[in-house]
Each structure stands twice: as structure tokens, then as C-alpha cells.
Amino acid sequence: MEATAFKKDVQTKHHKVEKVLIIVSKGTIEDVYAGLVMANGAVMEGIEAKMFFTFFGLNAIRKGKQDKLHTATVGNPAMMEHVPTMIAGLPGMEALASAMMKKEMDKMDIPPVSEFFDMIVAGGGEIYACQLAAEMFHLEEDDLIDDVKGIITVGDMYALADGPNTQIIFI
């Protein structure tokens, strides 16, 4: 009887999320915003947030690029449901869809990418770039926004996630 009670107690033991490590590997508007919304949402709740940008996700932290991200109009059936692929691929379609997306987000008080980073950092969040991907794309510290705290290895990234109540989210 006591053993059952003990087991029940273990099962329902509450571990609050204390830290999130959000890895952003893609560079489309929606993938980058997914990471930013979750990171900002974390700091707003008093949850520690670290962000690690790799591969095309690096575009989100590149000077001059971060506010010019695009969404894909080809190969994105959820977005271009009634548009034939050939049409979605016409010049200007991607820019148009991206501009419309940004306009809608602005209406909802969602900030541009650059401002979103400033908000996360102001709330105590930390931004890192992947060393391997940075080398691959020939990027150096000067190419990245000032909010970036460091260009680090995967090992260093895991160290950021230290602690018993951390969640790692991969986008």
C-alpha cells in the first residue's frame, strides 16, 4: 500500500521548466519567428532562454539580412493552397508573400526580427552562432549582429543547456 503511494508521488512530481535552449537551423520568416516567439515567451515567464543559430538560421543574425528574410512560396502547400506551383515560382511572388506576412505580423504588434532580438536580450536571453556553420558560410563576428554573444561549438552549446530542468527545442 505504501509502495503504491510512493510511486504515485514520483509520477506526479512537478518539475517546472527553468531553461530553454532553442536551436534555429532554418532561415525562413516562419521558422525564425517560431524561435523568437518561443525565446521571448520564455524570458517573459522568467524562464532562462538561450538561442543557437546554425546553417540557414544564421541569416537571422546576419547584419543587413535579418530583416529581409523570406518565406518559401514553392514547396509550401499549406501557404499556397490554391496557387499552382508554376505560378508560385514566378519572379516577385516570394517577395510579395513575405511582405504580406510581415504586414500581418506588424498588425499583431509582433516586432521586426532585429527588434525582437533586442527584446529577448533585454530580458536576459542569450544569442549564439554555430562555429561550424559560420565557417562554412565564411562568416565572422563582424558579419553578425551585436546581440550575438559568441560563435561556439556544439559542445559549448550543450553546456548552455546544463541543468536538470532544461528543454532543448530544435527548429
Binding site: G46, D109, M119, A122, G123, G124
Partner: peptide, 27 residues
């Protein structure tokens, strides 16, 4: 209300807001 809106209020910037109300500042 949003943290962004408070940051633009002219009263306090976002960093200052987190410092005034530590943890989950807006809540």
C-alpha cells in the same frame, strides 16, 4: 498590453522593466 508597448511608453525601456519587476515582469 505587451512588453513591447511598455518599452515604447517612454517610462522605462525593456531592460529596465525586467529589472523593476524581476521574473515574469508583465504578469
Amino acid at each position: 498590453l505587451s512588453i513591447r508597448r511598455i518599452g515604447k511608453s517612454g517610462i522605462v525601456d525593456i531592460k529596465g522593466f525586467y529589472a523593476l519587476f524581476p521574473g515574469a515582469p508583465l504578469k
